[in-house]
């Protein structure tokens, strides 16, 4: 009897220790994960803020050796590329999501499409880049803003399709039935009722996709290609913020490194604003009265 209680006491101590060790390890790993993020942010703000100035937002890059200059043309270029990308990705993505949620629900076809979209989401962006290169740039024989926009648009489609579908699925059936009961044709009910009810969530999804492709560099390397000068022509190579950061980061010039940090800060600021906005909207309840 005494022996038994002894082992059970030892056992209990051992289990308590294991419990504490596991807790400690979890806390340590959390700290180890959060540390690099904080380090990246602090360093980025420190380096970027000291290099940001008015010229950054108004001037195109100066030639090597001259001080000053900015990345205004890259910001414009990124805006144009993202506009082209969204013009392609958002309508097709939303329409695809509508099909999955409203027409294909539970069907084999919809499941296959959903699965393919998820898998496509994981295809490296550089592969998209070379595919668009061989599709558009090679036949045209020159790099162009259009091809860059197409590459970004293609990358947005699967993400937006999936988020649209998820948001539409959250719309209660009663709303659809009410619309149909009033004799509204199905297509109008989908566009004017279901889509409208889910629109905050869908906008959130579009913003997330937007934020994701805004930082993409790899697909632009061989499509938009980059440009040191002002250009808004869809048929010419165009500068883009992430691309310019990459070019400056691997250059040997301190002045360019400085600009790279400033560019990274601007890019991150844009993305963080988008993501926090999304989170704020999401936390306020996307669909009032759903479920």
């Amino acid at each position: 009897m005494a022996h038994r209680s002894n082992t059970s006491a030892a056992n209990r101590i051992w289990r308590t220790i294991a419990n504490h060790v596991a807790t400690g390890l979890a806390v340590v790993s959390t700290i180890l994960v959060v540390a690099p993020l904080v380090a990246i942010f602090v360093y980025l703000i420190y380096k970027g803020a000291s290099s940001l100035n008015f010229a950054f937002f108004t001037q195109a890059p100066k030639p090597v050796g001259e001080a000053g200059g900015g990345m205004a043309n890259s910001i414009l270029g990124s805006a144009i590329l993202l506009a082209v990308g969204s013009a392609i990705g958002v309508p097709i993505g939303i329409a695809g999501g509508i099909f999955l949620a409203e027409f294909g629900r539970g069907g084999r076809l919809a499941n296959t499409i959903r699965f393919t979209a998820d898998v496509l989401n994981g295809v490296p962006s550089i592969v998209m880049g070379i595919a668009v290169y061989s599709l558009i740039v090679l036949p045209q024989k020159h790099f162009s803003a259009l091809s860059g926009g197409v590459a970004l648009g293609i990358m947005m489609i699967p993400t937006i399709t999936r988020t649209t579908e998820e948001m539409l699925l959250m719309v209660p059936h009663a709303i659809r039935e009410a619309a149909l009961g009033l004799g509204v044709p199905n297509w109008r009910s989908v566009l004017a009722i279901t889509l409208k009810t889910a629109s905050p969530g869908i906008i959130t999804g579009c913003m997330l996709a937007f934020a994701r492709v805004a930082g993409e560099t790899a697909p632009l390397l061989f499509t938009a290609f980059g440009n040191q000068f002002w250009s808004a022509n869809l048929n010419e190579p165009i500068a883009a913020l992430p691309l310019q950061i990459f070019i400056y980061a691997i250059s040997p010039y301190d002045e360019w490194h400085r600009l790279a940090w400033a560019g990274a800060l601007v890019l991150i600021a844009l993305i963080v604003v988008a993501v926090s906005l999304v989170r704020y909207v999401a936390s306020r309840g996307i669909l009032k009265g759903a479920n």
């Binding site: 994960v33 959060v34 993020l37 380090a39 990246i40 360093y43 980025l44 380096k47 934020a211 994701r212 805004a214 930082g215 993409e216 560099t217 790899a218 992430p242 950061i245 990459f246 980061a249 691997i250 490194h257 790279a260 940090w261 990274a264 890019l267 991150i268 993305i271 963080v272 993501v275 989170r279």
Partner: peptide, 19 residues
């Protein structure tokens, strides 16, 4: 951690090179 996922690859690269 969500933010960590939203940082573009090129910014990670920049940080990696210099830090």
């Amino acid at each position: 951690t969500e933010l960590l996922a939203a940082i573009p690859s090129v910014v990670y690269g920049l940080w990696a090179i210099f830090v």
